[in-house]
Design a protein around this nucleic acid. Structure first.
Lengths: 103, 103
DNA sequence: CTCATGATTAGAAGTTTAGCTAACTATCTA
DNA sequence: TAGATAGTTAGCTAAACTTCTAATCATGAG
C-alpha cells in the first residue's frame, strides 16, 4: 500500500502509467516521452515494478512494460472505499479526462 | 496531486485520515493512537495540511483536525477515473459506506 | 567475432524524509 | 502570577529518494 502511493507520488511515474493505459510499451519508447536520462527512467520503472503496478517482459533486446490495471485498481479503489467514495460518473457521459496534470 | 499521494504514502498519515473519518479529533487525541513523539505527529499533521487533506481549527488550547473528504475524494477518484475504473459494487447490494460509523 | 542498440548497474552528489530531544509559545486554571 | 497542559519550532541524525555520468551486460545484425 505504501509502495503504491509512493510510486504514484512522482509525476513521471504517474505519466508512465498513463502512457501504459493504451497497451504495452518498451522502456525506450516510454523514455522518449521524458527529458530525464534513461538510467533515471530505469529506476522509475523499478519503483513501479516494486509496487507491482507494472509487468516487465523481455522481447529480444528490448523490454515490454505493461500496466497491471487490477493491482492499481484494487489499491486505489480499495483505499477509496474505506472512505465510502463511489464512482460518481454519469454513465451517459463518458469521460475524456485522459491527461494528468503533474504538479 | 503529488502532494496528496506523498501524504498518503505514509502509514501513520493514512491512519490519521482513517481516524478522522468518524469526525474531528484533536492533535493530542490523534497522537494517542500512535507510538511516535508528538513533534513527529505535528510534522505529519503539517504534511496532511499542506496536501489540503485536513483542516485545522484552534479551540482554546487544543487544535481540532478534520478530514477534507471532498479533496481526498477528488484526488483519488479523479486519478482513478483516468484509468476507467468503475464502481464494482453490486447495485442490488447497497453498502452502508456513507453512514456514520458509530463509535 | 565485432559492432551497434536497448537497457541496467555502479557510484556519487544533493535533497528530502522520518524520527528524536530539548526548548519554546500559547492557553487555561488555581 | 505560577504551574500545568497542548502543540510547535529548532537542531540534529540516519535513511531514503532523485538524478546524473560512466561503465557494463545482453541481444541481434553483418
Amino acid at each position: 500500500m505504501s509502495k503504491v502511493f509512493k510510486a504514484l507520488s512522482d509525476p513521471t511515474r504517474r505519466k508512465v502509467l498513463q502512457l501504459l493505459r493504451r497497451g504495452p510499451m518498451s522502456a525506450g519508447d516510454l523514455a522518449a516521452h521524458f527529458t530525464v536520462s534513461k538510467p533515471t527512467m530505469s529506476v522509475h520503472f523499478n519503483v513501479l515494478k516494486d509496487a507491482n503496478l507494472i509487468h516487465a517482459e523481455k522481447h529480444g533486446k528490448s523490454i515490454s512494460y505493461s500496466l497491471k490495471m487490477s493491482v492499481l485498481e484494487e489499491a486505489l479503489m480499495g483505499f477509496a472505499q474505506t472512505f465510502g467514495f463511489e464512482d460518481q460518473r454519469d454513465p451517459d457521459q463518458p469521460t475524456n479526462s485522459h491527461e494528468d496534470t503533474p504538479s
